[in-house]
Design a protein around this nucleic acid. Structure first.
Lengths: 342, 342
DNA sequence: CTGTTAGCGCCTTCAC
DNA sequence: GTGAAGGCGCTAACAG
């Protein structure tokens, strides 16, 4: 049996006043006598009165909670976004409900369904890698539940979006590799329907073109995921080539780490024989051997900004449906897995 | 303006029946005509009726949601616990509200307060490293809100607990180091009021004693946290000793990685000059150079079990206040940062 | 300054 | 089989 919490009515009865009076006293309503206010507040404290947010939510049709859906929470990357979001929404008095899709659309739909049932006021979503159709997002918007998409763009889905300029990050990375003398630069891409994979690939090819280097399709291999194991698989393919690459630009650090393991296993030197560059700049990346050169992203800021935009939607008396599209700038962090500039 | 969702009353009015009838129809109540039931269900579907869980929660005094508090979500360790919890509670139809204390008691208290306001049905808590007083936990129990403590024990706080046998893990690690010929084994401990730090330290000292090795206090240094930076600081102290250690057992992988960096920087060989063993077996640990020997913990299982115990509390018609104390077994994973057995 | 009324959406008696 | 009434906890509008 859960212990009965004190309600406004309890206070009212004890003090021989009406519930509304108590409510007003508790809310610093102007027209209330100092005396009753004091009495109410005092008793409330004594009874450890706590407002029942459920009742309030029911009344206001507003739960003051927002849902966030990430592919996976065990990823440092997304966990950091969540930190940014959390800090922003907490300051605004909102509760955050964190869920993970595990890269499955079905999960994603289920989560949206579940969180809709508990009536979250809005959603922050980084779509799963399987998500190519956005009906479940559109349904939310049709219901006037605001959403903001972050990290992974989804074409054809109109919404507020906060993204990182993956194209530019890739450009920086590959440009640098070229400048340090690499000629045969390979790329390990991520899941192909993910905007981040596509944009990083585009940055890679454009950097080559721009520098007059021909694109060789056998130097582009794709991995189905972001872990070292995925990188190992892909790197093996690359290193089996008759004409081996002298650099590998990986879609992320996890894959890069797998690639480094393969390279070292074959007795090649990094970066002398093969340079390696990752993406995301995970916390351990500087502790690998050699320390991994990687593209850092303003992940925490992405969380903050996404949350801020969503919160704004709550307040704006909308009618304005112009969606925002914010692109944050990444930055290449040069370490030992790539050669030095001459 | 949020679009109005269909309510039971809407359906009732359209069908010219009462709200109770609709409610019953929707719940397969026995005494209801097939006919009306069909009509109701059909219309409900058409109107995309969704029960308002807020109203239900208010009525039932039960939100079907549980709160989990971890020190930090960016830790792979805790993220994995959350996965286990999530899978278990989702299967039982519960929602999980994830929060992080950032190792601050104040935060912890605030979270408990916030989540109590939204009336979660129970808590899963891994206390912050600052938490030495448990009034805020006791308050929950006084209110008949069940809690289960996981990962970090707190002495003097009676509650269901799910822990890992850190003592045994340390014993395994240090025993192995001794067997492989290490004589001067150092230990980098974690924050001292954390049970995990204390137990790993105890395992360390007992392993030495058991093998007739004298404990040397200058070989025990403490770090304030779990990151590589903390490990670097501690390892520098150790390596500045006139009589250097030939092995370092670190409180966790992060610290171990920092220690490895220092050792390598000084030109010493791992494991030939100094062996290194970590704790937690993080996903990247096998990709460091050399691959890190570490104590693996059944973290996902810890999450599952903790959740299961909490769910049981909800169902048991209590009166039985006997608390459970589950201790899970860790396992030493031997890799290249420690010597081989002869 | 304070009380009364009504209702947020739903379910559970108790009637018929 | 179905309806009416009451209430979960709270607040806003309307009265005084």
């Amino acid at each position: 049996m859960k212990k009965q919490q004190a309600t406004i009515l309890d206070i009212a009865r004890i003090l021989n006043v009406s519930a509304s009076t108590v409510s007003r006293a508790l809310h610093d309503h102007p027209s209330i006598s100092m005396e009753t206010k004091r009495a109410v507040v005092e008793l409330a404290e004594q009874l450890k009165y706590q407002p029942n947010l459920l009742a309030l939510s029911l009344l206001n049709k507003k739960t003051n909670s927002i849902g966030i859906i990430v592919p996976e929470i065990t990823s440092f990357y997304f966990a950091t976004v969540i930190n940014g979001v959390q800090d922003m929404v907490a300051a605004a008095g909102y509760n955050l409900m964190i869920s993970q899709s595990n890269e499955s659309v079905e999960q994603e739909k289920k989560i949206i369904n579940d969180l809709s049932l508990v009536r979250v006021d809005g959603f922050l979503i980084s779509p799963s890698s399987e998500t190519i159709n956005f009906d479940h997002f559109d349904k939310l918007k049709d219901n006037d539940v605001p959403i903001v998409i972050f990290d992974r763009d989804c074409l054809g889905c109109e919404a507020d979006k906060v993204l990182v300029d993956d194209y530019d990050g890739a450009l920086q990375a590959v440009d640098y590799l070229i400048k340090t003398g690499c000629k045969r630069i390979a790329h390990i891409t991520g899941p192909s329907n993910l905007s981040v994979s596509r944009h990083r690939l585009a940055g890679y090819t454009d950097a080559l073109k721009r520098n007059g280097i021909e694109i060789q399709h056998d130097l582009i291999v794709s991995s189905d995921g972001f872990s070292p194991e995925h990188g190992i698989e892909a790197a093996k393919l690359l290193l089996a080539l008759k004409n081996q690459p002298d650099a590998i630009f990986a879609v992320n650090d996890g894959v890069a780490i797998g690639a480094m393991a393969v390279i070292k296993e074959l007795g090649k030197k990094i970066p002398d024989d093969i340079s390696v560059v990752g993406f995301d700049d995970e916390p351990y990346s500087s502790y690998f051997t050699p320390a991994l050169t990687s593209v850092w992203q303003p992940v925490y800021d992405m969380g903050m900004l996404s949350a801020k935009i969503l919160l704004n939607r709550f307040n704006s008396n909308d009618t304005e449906v112009k969606f925002r599209r914010e692109i944050l700038k990444p930055e290449l962090i040069i370490r030992e897995s790539s050669r030095k500039l001459e």
